[in-house]
């Protein structure tokens, strides 16, 4: 038996009120209800990290959370990273360091990286490798991704 729930949720700084089916995952809510298609689904099994978003500031897999649970929550997706014209420093560093090829995993890595940078002052390469180990990239071999995050961590420019 299916239920529905009215939720009020803030996404990328904007408030939304919606009636959602209880079983609708946050990822599908973002993609189909809000048309924020930058959050990608790579497995829906909680394994690939492509759907990572920030929920109340913490990186989580949006395929493993239901939108119906999230009244009062604040969500940041990849679309909320750039400040209008200006890219987030991580976004620029990803381009500069060849941290992407097909681009499908990129939003998930970016949001995971935001949490790493918020958390640690001196993220070194091995810390970063461990921290992004829940995100799969099939194209790059990760080196460019690690380099990009290290670069931003060193510059401290995210703060």
């Amino acid at each position: 038996m299916t239920g529905t729930t009215s939720i009020g949720i803030r996404v990328n700084g904007e408030d939304f009120e919606r009636e959602v089916e209880d079983r609708l995952t946050l990822a599908d809510f973002l993609r189909s209800e809000l048309r924020l298609t930058g959050t990608h689904l790579g497995c829906e099994q909680g394994s690939c990290g492509a759907c990572t978003v920030l929920l109340d500031g913490s990186a989580i897999r949006s395929c493993l959370v239901f939108a119906s649970q999230l009244t009062g929550a604040e969500v940041t997706t990849v679309e909320g990273l750039a400040n209008q014209a200006d890219l987030h420093p991580l976004q620029s560093a990803f381009i500069k360091n060849d941290a992407l090829q097909c681009g499908f995993c990129t939003p998930g890595f970016l949001l995971t990286a935001v949490e790493i940078l918020n958390e640690t002052d001196h993220a070194d390469e091995s810390t970063i490798r461990e921290a992004i180990s829940g995100n799969i990239c099939r194209c790059t071999g990760y080196q460019g991704i690690v380099d990009a995050i290290v670069e931003v961590a060193r510059s401290g420019s995210e703060r």
Partner: peptide, 17 residues
């Protein structure tokens, strides 16, 4: 530039059409 589209989450993969 494709790379910029991709880091902004503006890529249009099949599911995004």
């Amino acid at each position: 530039m494709k790379a910029e589209e991709f880091v902004r989450g503006q890529g249009q993969y099949l599911a995004d059409l």
